[in-house]
Each structure stands twice: as C-alpha cells, then as structure tokens.
Amino acid sequence: MSEEFVLKTQDLTKHYGGVHALEGANFELRQGEHIAIMGDNGAGKSTFVRQITGVEQRTRGKVWLYGEEVHFAGPLDAREAGIETVFQTLALADDLDVPDNLFLGREKTFANWLGPFRLLDYRGMRQATIDGLNRTAVKIPNIRNTIRNMSGGQRQCVAIARTATFHSKLTIMDEPTAALGVQETAQVENIIRTLKEQGEPLILISHNMRQVMDLVDRIVVFRRGRIVANLKRDETDGQDVVAYITGAKTQPEFEIEGVT
C-alpha cells in the first residue's frame, strides 16, 4: 500500500439491522488534498465519517491511514492516530474554557505518579492553545472564557482549533458552518484555507455548494449509502454535482445493476 494516500477505504460498509446505511464505499484522500463529501440527508455521509473515526464499528471493509490498516475501537483511538473530527454536535464542555476543551481527555500533566489526581499543566496547555490558534488564525477574544459565553462561530472555531493544536494527520469537519451566520461562516472558511495552505488534508461534509466549490479539490457524492461520483472541482460545476446528488446522473464506474 502506497503512502501517498492519507486515507483509503475499501468496501466500507455499515448496516444497522436491515438498513444499509453505507454500502461498499471505496474512498481515497491524497496528501494535502481537501475533499468535500456531498449528498442528501440520509445518503450515508455521516455514517461514513462515523466508521472512519471509530464512533461506530463497521460491518465490513478496510480502512488505511497513511498506508497502515487501522481498526479503531473508539473515537479516542482515531484521535490518537491523528484523525481530528469536528462533529456536527460540537462535543464541547460548556462550563470549561478553551484550553480545557482543547485538551479534554489528553491533558498536559505533571506528577503523573498521582494517577487520576495528577496535576494539570495549565500554563503549558494555555501556551499550546495560543500557538494553535495563531497557526490557524482563529480569533477568540478571550480563551479563558467558558464555552457557554461564546457565540456559535467562536464555538466552532474552538472545535476546529483542536486540529491545529494537535498537528493532526487528517481533519474531518461535519457541516462546520450549518449553524453559523455570514461573517462566522467566512471566518471558518478562512481557517479551512489556512489548513489548505499548510498542506493539511481535510474531509469536509457540507450542503453549501458555493462553499464546496470555493474550498475543495475534489467532490465525492453519496446517494442512498453508495458513492455515485468522484469529481474534480475544476471539471465540474454546481448543476452537475446536483445532478449526481439527486440521482439524475451516476458516474459509469459507480453504476451498479438494479440501483439507480
């Protein structure tokens, strides 16, 4: 297996009982590439992400990360392997501040012999947070603020800043701007551009056609649990993508008998 692929899946499948939420997904992500996953609600986008990030256990199929076959028992495994996910539900603790949230579950500590009572290295975590935020140009007025006191956009930025802070190998964003205003959306998009400039690979799930066309290199379309198109951004346009999403078109290599 070549290491040119950051992520590669083969025949990735997930059935919930009789529901075939994801069926035989073959997916490739190259170094430094930004890919958008598009599709209708229930097309299998989130299911696909949940299999990669270890939130759920796949029914069958294989996943390689940097050429190495991986099998994550849980989201922490995936995170430790370098997959950082910004979930639709933000997964932030409202009563904690920014560094606390970034380092939740993997705190910088000292006096580790104290076990669960080992001491928190607040200073180190704060510095790493500032470095990470600066690297991504994420603007948060006061990182000592609790998440509760932040706007939706700021919360989203905190979730995204995890990526930068931990030098992740792959960033996955599940509809990062769905709940944001115009200005906040622009801010998040700028962060994504910064990641692109730095060569950080990214998978973006989005319903926003303009955003996708602006930001990514390739678009993978899901429909009814299957991949139906793998399009280079430069060789397609919005109408074309919509045709694949709605089922008007399917790329020949993804044609399956009996499935339209």
Binding site: V55, D95, P116
Partner: peptide, 27 residues
C-alpha cells in the same frame, strides 16, 4: 485543590457539563 488542579477535577466538571463531549474526548 483537587477539583481545581487535577485531571480528576477537570473530568468531573467535564462530565457534568457535557457527558457526551466527555465520552467523545476519550474520558
């Protein structure tokens, strides 16, 4: 001191704040 300065304290607050987030963070 334990609640303010240790991992135990931080995780206790995190669980009460958002149990799902705490679980997803690997606690």
């Amino acid at each position: 001191l334990i609640m303010s300065f240790t991992v135990y304290g931080k995780h206790t607050y995190a669980i009460g704040s958002n149990e799902e987030a705490a679980r997803m963070s690997g606690i």
